[in-house]
Structures are given as structure tokens and as C-alpha cells.
Design a protein around this nucleic acid. Sequence first.
DNA 1: ACCTGAACACCGTTCAAGT
DNA 2: ACCTGAACACCGTTCAAGT
Lengths: 217, 217
Amino acid sequence: MPVDRVIAAAVELVDEVGPGEFSMRLLAQRLRSSTATLYRHFAGKDEIFVHVVEHVLGEVPRHLPELPDEPTWQDLLGATADALFRTLKEHPNVAALFGDQVPLGPRALAGREAAIGILLAGGFTAEVAAKAYTAVGHYVVGFATQLRAGGTSDEKEENHDLREFYRTLDPARYPATVASAAFLPISLDDEFRFGLQLIVDGLARQLPHAGDRAPRG
Amino acid sequence: MPVDRVIAAAVELVDEVGPGEFSMRLLAQRLRSSTATLYRHFAGKDEIFVHVVEHVLGEVPRHLPELPDEPTWQDLLGATADALFRTLKEHPNVAALFGDQVPLGPRALAGREAAIGILLAGGFTAEVAAKAYTAVGHYVVGFATQLRAGGTSDEKEENHDLREFYRTLDPARYPATVASAAFLPISLDDEFRFGLQLIVDGLARQLPHAGDRAPRG
DNA sequence: ACCTGAACACCGTTCAAGT
DNA sequence: ACCTGAACACCGTTCAAGT
């Protein structure tokens, strides 16, 4: 029973049924094995979830978008956050696992290193880089966590229901909510990029207004 | 068995043991009742969790900080986000419940209404107000979700362990991580306010540069 | 060495039976 | 009407016993 096979099956199972319905018995069944065998390779369910998160983080680099020839740190940071968001969009049930663990596997560390490296190269101090990383990271995870809030139904229908709900509220009592509901549903990607842009632009204004673009050579 | 008593006890229980260890049996025990009685008042565990979230959101107004005499929309939006964050800091285990539900109770709606109202009064279009609300909301919830990631141990020790971990990494392999780890632990409140400031400042730059402050009278 | 059926102490939820 | 003990079909985890 190779551990990689267990982890791959665990990712599939979390994707399909979510962390709540995930069980060691289901996983063992899917592997045509027994729960006791799983405990020979992993300390328990939580340890398997740690590996699930780490495995999914390994997919982030594949989601990096095209970049301009001489990307600014804004391009690079935005692309990194975007890639993480795209990855979690493909595994919305995995996003919920971030509430129970701080990912510290090699892939997680590589991501942290890359992001902070981008900020340091962009001219930020180590202190601001650390804070900026946390702000961006929590923003992405916060968004991704909400991807599956409210059930497994598909996004369009979900958004439609929510909009209808907000629209049918009493406009005397909830005037701002009703007015803004007219513009729902904005696509999740648009909403995500809007907030990300705010953060990245805000960071840019923290610099002494050089170093936005690394000098050539 | 008044429902309010059940909800109050449920909030206490989630606070103490977290959503994972929460059980209908424990709750019934604490109320000196039986699980079957709980099911006479609530459809099930998930419905109780919905009421727990709603109850906790009711505490947000109590956490609103002092405001200047003529607050700008930035003051108001920042104060609202801050109050939500403080509330969730007092109930870190409740923050995890946001991953499974979109809060739609009266208290949740009142909060949404207040926040979007602040943005509309600040001069934003309904569309931007909706997006801005989502960005701020997801940022706060994302931050709050991480409050309890990694266990129930207290914040200082938790941060200390993390910093030690990052510091003892191989600096050749993780130079940026190690360099920035010297500045950990930054207090969670500082980190939170840093990112929130970025978002609020970013929003301000979306305005046609009037209306930052509502004109008197 | 590696695997497993069966067990233990739990769950969420339901229901017949009590007052 | 309102409550409850006991049951059902599940969990995560462990362990004696098999090959």
C-alpha cells in the first residue's frame, strides 16, 4: 500500500464528499483495503488531511498564468495569489481544511518562500513582506473557504438563489442590501480579483516609489 | 426547554470544545435534557450551528470602537470590520462555522446592510459597494478562520513555535522565509489591521476624489 | 513483515413508550 | 403536549489473530 496512492485517493474522496462525509472506512473501501491498514501508514484522519492539503498545494504552480516578459512584483504576486485561488477552486472542499491546520509541508513552504521572495525583490522590508504575505494569504483562503459555503450545488444556481433572497427583502428595512443585490451575482473570479487588486495596489503605495520594477541587469 | 437557552448553551459548548468535538449528546447533557428533546426544537446539528453563528454576530455591535465626531466612511468601514474581527477573536471556534454556511439571519443581514450602507453613503456605486463588501468580509473571515488553525493553544506560544520553526529552516533553501521570520510573531491584531488598511485605502482610490467625507448638513 | 475482521467507545438521528 | 431511554446505522481508532 504505497502512501502516494492513499493520498491521491484521499484527495479524490475529499473532493467528492467533503471533509464532513469523509471517513476512514470509505477511504479504505475505495482502496480495497481496511482501516487498520491505513493506520499502519498514517497516525489518523488528521494526518491524512495534512497530506491532502500538501498534495493540493503541489498543483499551484500548474495554475500560474502567463506573465509579461519583464514582470513587476505586482504581476508576480498577483499571479501567485491567482494560481492558489484557481487551485482551490478545483478543490473547494479542500479549502475548508485550512481552518484546522497551518500548512507546513515542503510545497507549502516553497509557496511561502516564493511569495515572500517576490516581495523582498520588489523592495519591501522583511517586516512588511511578512505582513503582506499574511494579508494576501488570508484573503485568498478566506475567499476560497466561502467557495463551498452553503452546499455543493453549482455556483450559478447558488448565486441566483442568494440574489433572489436579497432582492425579496423588505427595501424599507434593508435598502442598501436590496440596491446592491441588483448587481449580484458578480462572478466569483471578478470579486476575487477586485479585492486582490486593492491589496496589491495598496502595497505598492507602501514603497518609496522606486523598485516597482527590478532594474535590468 | 426555551430555544434561547439551547442556543446559549450551544455557543458555550462550541467555544469550549470546537465544532469537531461538539455533539448533540454533550449539549443535551449540559442542558440536563436528552438529544430527542433537542430534535423537537431544531432540525439537527447544522441548524443549531446556524443559530450559533447568528447569536455570535449579535455581539458585533458591542465591539464597535470609539469613533471620531464626524467619521469618514473609512472610519466607519474600518470600525465595522474591526468589530467583527474582535467578536470572532472571542469565539475562534465559531469562525470555522463560516465555511459551511452563508449567514442569513436578521443579525447577519443587519451587518450586511450597515456595511453596504456605509459604502453607498461614501459615494460608491451599488456595484462597487457589493464587491467591496465581499472583499472586506472574506478578508475578515479568512483571518478569523486562521485564529484557531493549529490547535487551541494560546496565541503567544503558537506564534513562538511557528517562528522557531521558520527560523530553523535551511536559509539556503528558504532565504526569504528565514529573513522574514525574524519579524515574527507580529501580533495578529497588527497583521489584521495592516491588510484591512490596504483594502480600505485601495477603496478610497476608487472614488472620484470627492465624498471621502460626507458634507455637513 | 504486512494485512485484516471484529471490537470499543463514540456519533447524528429516530421512535415507541412514558407522564 | 412535552419529554425520554433505547435503538439504528454510522464514526475514529485499536488489537488479537491470520498469512
